[in-house]
Amino acid sequence: MALGRVGIWNRTVAEGRPESAEAAAELEELGFGAVWIGGSPPVSMAENVLAATSRIIVATSILNIWQHEPADVATQAAAANAKFDNRFVLGLGASHGPMVANYSKPLATMKAFLAGLDAAGHPREQRLLAALGPKMLELSAREAGGAVPYLTTAEHTARARDILGPDRLLVPELKVVLTNDRAEGLDIGREHLQIYLTLPNYLNSLRTLGFDDADFADGGSDKLVTGTVAVGDESVVDEWVQRHLDAGADHVAIQVLNSPLPRDQWRALSGLTQHRS
């Protein structure tokens, strides 16, 4: 799977409006290797981006397994790949307790969903799991093509690579605020992080990365924001990307927080698609 150095994590680009399709086509022309559709998108949202492009890889990041049946997803994924030259990748996740009614045993539920995909003939190499902890990462190595960790650091990327082994795809998401105004960047980053401070899975993961309850209080500490969001110009973002790659990532999914459809920032970051010599 030729993903290149970086891709773009965004939901608005897949919403099917004319401006979204135009933005998707431009991302391809700018040289980004993949579009990672944020939120809990169905396969049909990926098809909006696939239809607007001709080369770029398109993935769900992530499809919520509590909202779909595995046999249906397998059928939809196969149809998307048949129609669009095998450019679709199925990113799956178990979501979070506060967001799902009757939430329980996410690891067991994911195993059952993957078994359903297997039974329906979905290729394991065409699926990635949203994995933070060791057990979900181990499952990603055994029963998927790799992992797409969200809200992590390069330290987590190194740990994930050790668990996944050398042959599984590892695609961390990286939050970015492209600005030279540090105060503005911190404000945007802190506002974005608010929802995650209510979700135990993320808090538990962040604790393993050196953050604690003081960092989660009062809207989030500067340490939390500057430790999880790349704030600065293109060179700063490039350094963050390279840290993930050096830690074992195959590709980094950049989520620009400046606006819902940050086309100016994507243009400014297009130089990151080039591999360093």
Results as ranks from 00 to 15, higher is better:
152 T>E: 10
138 E>L: 13
126 Q>D: 14
128 L>M: 12
128 L>N: 01
113 F>V: 08
150 Y>P: 02
173 E>M: 12
126 Q>P: 01
168 R>A: 12
141 A>V: 03
156 H>E: 10
122 H>S: 14
121 G>P: 14
153 T>C: 06
176 V>H: 04
133 G>C: 05
115 A>E: 13
168 R>W: 05
178 L>K: 01
136 M>D: 08
131 A>H: 03
112 A>Y: 06
142 R>M: 13
118 D>G: 07
146 G>A: 07
138 E>R: 14
130 A>Y: 01
171 V>T: 11
175 K>G: 04
119 A>N: 13
178 L>I: 09
142 R>Y: 09
173 E>P: 01
123 P>I: 03
146 G>E: 05
159 R>Y: 06
171 V>I: 15
145 G>T: 02
177 V>D: 00
168 R>C: 10
130 A>Q: 02
150 Y>E: 05
134 P>T: 05
152 T>H: 08
131 A>I: 07
128 L>H: 01
169 L>F: 11
177 V>S: 04
173 E>V: 10
138 E>Y: 09
131 A>Y: 02
172 P>G: 07
138 E>A: 15
162 D>E: 15
133 G>D: 11
168 R>T: 03
146 G>I: 05
151 L>R: 03
148 V>E: 00
154 A>Q: 11
144 A>F: 05
153 T>E: 08
153 T>A: 08
147 A>R: 03
154 A>M: 07
160 A>C: 12
129 L>Q: 00
116 G>F: 07
163 I>E: 07
